[in-house]
Design a protein around this nucleic acid. Structure first.
Lengths: 99, 99
DNA sequence: TGGTTTAATCGTAAAAATACGATAAATGAT
DNA sequence: ATCATTTATCGTATTTTTACGATTAAACCA
């Protein structure tokens, strides 16, 4: 009754299920690439908290982070986000067929 | 930096951010309408727990529940789910334009 | 009316999430 | 080599989530 689809989709949804993380993702989509410090500037949260949120997003596969010297440059994984949007749309369309 | 979009979208994502709730939604999409007891049959969770998950989904606007005598008949709000899929897709396409 | 069925709510325990400051680790600059 | 910058991680307190059994409330049936 709960399958792989559920757990991976739920993981992504869960990652987006916090306003701060959604804001972080939007920031990354907007600026394309940015370092942790930039996000700390924009959000009213401590550096350690932002770092924690970035980890959640990364673990869900929604963003990637390249270490560049002492900095880490983050960017959104657009394909994964597209996958999620598709997964939700598919959930709907699969059930439409049998109506 | 965190707006209405973020909070409402995050609320829906958060509701979907648990495998059991995703399974419940899928069940409702599949069977179109079903009562709480039916979901309890399908999931390995206690009645009170299922009821709690149904409340979370309802508060997020993803499902609706009609009281029918002693039973409550739940159904998925397809429009809201479509809205979420669209919101995520828009998030992407809005950022594509400026690349 | 009394008993049954159904679902919500209450109370509660355990686990997870959230936020922070402090610290550590790594790199770059002087 | 030392110092500054940047980010991850640690430790921790607080809040929230999750799950359960027990109880309540409402409606139906006999």
């Amino acid at each position: 009754m709960l399958n792989t689809f559920d757990t991976t989709t739920a993981l992504m949804c869960k990652a987006l299920g916090h306003p701060a993380r959604l804001a972080i993702l939007r920031q990354l989509l907007h600026e394309d690439r940015c370092i942790c410090g930039r996000i700390v500037e924009v959000l009213p949260l401590a550096q350690s908290t932002v770092s924690q949120h970035l980890k959640v997003l990364r673990d869900a596969g929604l963003i990637r982070g390249d270490v560049e010297g002492p900095k880490t440059c983050y960017c959104a994984d657009r394909a994964r986000l597209a996958d999620l949007a598709t997964a939700l749309a598919d959930l709907l369309s699969a059930s439409e067929k049998k109506r």
